[in-house]
């Protein structure tokens, strides 16, 4: 379990948040390997987000997070929100100037990512003036712009139409990126991810390579 390729490992963890009455996860043991594409599945409210946040806490300095609610600053442009992925890489002075007058170099770098996600035309629109799907793509672009080789994503394509969702999942899983994403869409999970972790009643119900998962297991995961 603890070979060089492991990105993050949890052993027999009980995960809960003191100030919320959110789901509690028990006896969680898992290890994510470099380059793996892992989907977290399970019924609503089971603790998929809780698990992702716990993983992020372990590796916050070498991973990027895509929030389910996007966590974008609605009053800023799409460009600025994506740029925020690298705030900690640039000097504060550079960041402040960029806020008032975006640097050509940064625009160029951001555009490389937005072109893959088909949101280049709205680069300088305020986020509160774009659609839900465009917001979600902005959030993904921000995580990609961060440049980490690991992305934790909470329902990354929930607001995006089928065609674009598949394009984005292809982009995310077609690279050397390590990706852990919660997915309510099981067919996407089976199609694009190499490994699937099923959460049920606060525990890991199964943790298997895609090829080993049976329809029966999936039915049990979602049924009482």
């Amino acid at each position: 379990m603890s070979d060089k390729q492991s990105v993050v490992t949890l052993t027999d963890e009980t995960i809960s948040y003191a100030n919320t009455r959110g789901p509690v996860l028990k006896d969680i043991s898992l290890s994510i390997q470099r380059g793996e594409h892992v989907a977290i599945a399970g019924p609503s409210g089971v603790g998929k987000t809780t698990l992702l946040k716990r993983l992020f806490k372990e590796i916050s300095d070498k991973a990027a997070f895509v929030h389910q609610d996007f966590s974008l600053v609605e009053q800023l442009s799409v460009y600025h929100n994506i740029y925020m992925g690298r705030l900690d890489y640039y000097s504060t002075f550079h960041n402040l100037l960029n806020l008032f007058r975006p640097f050509k170099m940064s625009i160029f770098a951001v555009k490389k990512i937005t072109e893959q996600l088909a949101i280049s035309e709205i680069l300088f629109k305020r986020v509160d003036q774009v659609s839900g799907g465009q917001k979600q793509r902005t959030a993904i672009a921000r995580a990609l712009f961060n440049g980490s080789d690991c992305i934790l994503a909470d329902e990354p394509v929930s607001s995006i139409d089928q065609v674009n969702a598949e394009k984005i999942l292809t982009r995310l899983t077609d690279s050397s990126l390590t990706l852990v994403a919660s997915m309510h869409n099981v067919s996407f999970a089976l199609k694009y991810f190499s490994r699937i972790i099923g959460l049920k009643e606060g525990r890991i119900f199964f943790d298997l390579p895609r090829s080993d998962i049976t329809t029966d297991q999936l039915q049990k995961l979602y049924n009482q």
């Binding site: 990027a64 997070f65 929030h67 009053q75 800023l76 925020m84 705030l87 960041n95």
Partner: peptide, 23 residues
């Protein structure tokens, strides 16, 4: 404020806070 916000106070203040409360 999201948990993955910038670690710099000034960065965070100008990008995450001020745009949201400017009005």
């Amino acid at each position: 404020l999201p948990m993955d916000r910038s670690k710099g106070i000034i960065n965070c203040y100008f990008y995450e806070v001020i745009p949201r409360i400017y009005g």
